[in-house]
Amino acid sequence: MSQNLSSGPEPTVADLDRPLYTPIKRRSFFMYAGATAGATALVLAGCDKDDNNSPGMVNVGTSDVGVLNYAYALEQLEADFYTQVRTGTYYTTIANAVEKQILDDLYYHEVIHRDFFKAAITAAGATPIKALTTVYPANTFSTKASVLNTAKAFEDLGVAAYNGAAQYITKPDYLYLAGKIVSIEARHAAIIRDLVTEGSFVGSDIVDIAGNSLEMSKLPSVVVATANTFLADGSKLDVSGLG
């Protein structure tokens, strides 16, 4: 019989029930209950990586909030990109009405995603990461080819990133939210790819067409290797706490 449970006051149903409501209370339950080897390991695991910021990098954190902040970071990148697109030479002087209509919608959607995540992370009682500073190669916003190819890279990356990070989400409502957004990113990716090359809405570079026709999802560590090339020093992402 459990030494831990019998060493304190006689446990009641309420005592057993209450500590299971939230992770914080769960942790205090084990602290209160005393130090078996297993319980100690759990307490340590609960504290793992909380303060593991790499110098000069933005650590998205761990677990559900880590995934939300990771998504917030990627949405910041996309929102900033389309914001700059709309003041660039391609959009203001070259793009036709249809291309502008599409880029306007993508701008709205990504800015909405960005500020939604900031609000949702705050509402969840967690802290959003800071506003990130972006960097782009020269003349990114000047030509049709560079704008659309950069958009294609971001949208495809976003789809692969959400698909690859979903496995780290524990709450069904958060997973559902990620699902609501990733299909929008996929819709974006398809039309942008079609604008680049008609009929390339799926392609062997992003979907395993020769095999199972599954999107080729990417783990956070792979995604940030690309994303960080568009982020300034001090804004580069550290996703070591995920997975």
Partner: peptide
């Protein structure tokens, strides 16, 4: 889960293109 999502996004790409 990951496989299902990797189908889900392909369906969304199809939906986008059919709409175009």
């Amino acid at each position: 889960l990951t496989a299902a999502l990797n189908i889900h996004s392909v369906e969304a790409r199809h939906a986008s293109h059919i709409r175009a």
